[in-house]
Amino acid sequence: MSAPDSEAMEAVTDFLRKCNPSADSVDWDCDLIDARILDSLTFVEFLLLMEEFSGGPIDLGTTDVANFRTLNRISAFLTKAGTHEQP
């Protein structure tokens, strides 16, 4: 896993590491769901973390789950939400 570039991405990587220690070695383009780092149980908590750092509720009716499948996409999502600088 590359070095986190912000408090938000640091929190994301810390969360993923606790879900599955193999998160430490994943590429930023790795699909976190296919790699079973995020699953149906942990995704609920992960979305709340995303809401906290993006500053508002995330409606999955209008926000594609694909935004959260890789670290690069998560970083882009948080950048768009204005919470941190993209690497």
């Binding site: 995020l38 699953d39 149906s40 995704f43 609920v44 999955l60």
Partner: peptide, 9 residues
């Protein structure tokens, strides 16, 4: 319910 968008394994 805080339903997960991912299908249960």
């Amino acid at each position: 319910e805080a339903a997960s968008p991912l299908r249960r394994e």
